[in-house]
């Protein structure tokens, strides 16, 4: 390796000898005098103070903070695009509530059918199925929500159109109970079928009759 460098040096021999022959520059005669005068007078003014080293983290901190704020704003601020998903969630919840309602009715029926000693297997299957639905979707049996005062809405203003300039996202407060996510728009309410109402009424009537019969039998027994 050293030989290689020696060979390299030979290649530049002329240049190297000329460089070595360059005249030596000497300090001016008053160099030391000037230096010692500066030291005695404490004239160090031109000596630069060492600058603090460049720190990438410190340099990027303000911009990172701004970026984080902007990101958080976009993540948490309710977007218009979010509203369809919220509506979908609400309709899902409404569906599961109706399932829960059906399940309750069916439980009620099965309770009384035991009394009447008219047990039917398909109904039991239906009950167990709907219980599974409840287990999968616990929001179906959610307790009625507390009304949130912060989300209170002046309905009269909406009717008169006085607050049409307000944030459209707040219109959702009219239809939800307050703790639900904000919904822009109204859910289409499905009208109850007349047949279903009559069916439930007849069931309730028959239950009442059965209850009355049971009571009269008890009285007769006494």
């Amino acid at each position: 390796m050293n030989e290689l460098y020696n060979r390299e040096e030979q290649k530049f021999s002329n240049l190297l000898s000329d460089l070595k022959k360059l005249p030596k520059i000497e300090a001016p005669d008053n160099f030391e005098f000037n230096l010692m005068t500066r030291i005695e007078n404490k004239n160090f003014g031109q000596v630069e103070e060492e600058r603090p080293k460049f720190n990438l983290l410190k340099f990027l901190a303000p911009s990172a903070a701004v970026l984080a704020t902007v990101l958080l704003f976009f993540i948490f601020y309710p977007q218009k695009n979010d509203i369809p998903t919220q509506i979908a969630n609400q309709s899902k919840a409404a569906d599961s509530q109706s399932i829960a309602g059906n399940t309750a009715n069916k439980n009620f029926e099965s309770l009384f059918s035991k009394e009447e000693k008219k047990s039917s297997t398909p109904k039991r299957e239906a009950v167990s199925q709907s219980n599974q639905n409840i287990a999968q979707n616990p929001s179906a049996v959610k307790s009625p929500a507390q009304f949130n005062q912060r989300r209170s809405v002046a309905v009269d203003d909406y009717i008169s159109g006085a607050n049409s300039n307000q944030n459209p996202a707040l219109r959702g407060n009219i239809v939800n109970s307050g703790d639900q996510p904000i919904v822009d728009g109204f859910l289409v309410e499905k009208k109850t079928d007349k047949k279903t109402i009559e069916k439930f009424r007849s069931e309730l009537d028959s239950l009442k009759k059965a209850q009355a019969k049971a009571d009269s039998l008890k009285k007769a027994g006494k």
Binding site: I25, E26, A27, P28, F31, N34, L35, V47
Partner: peptide, 30 residues
């Protein structure tokens, strides 16, 4: 002072600037 003058002059190419740089070097050393 002389070796440094020679080195700095060859590097910077200006005698006055070179004198200043060597003076600063000595002040830093002090």
């Amino acid at each position: 002072k002389d070796p440094l003058m020679n080195f700095v002059y060859r590097f910077v190419g200006d005698r006055d600037v070179c004198t200043d740089v060597v003076q600063e070097t000595m002040i830093k050393f002090y």
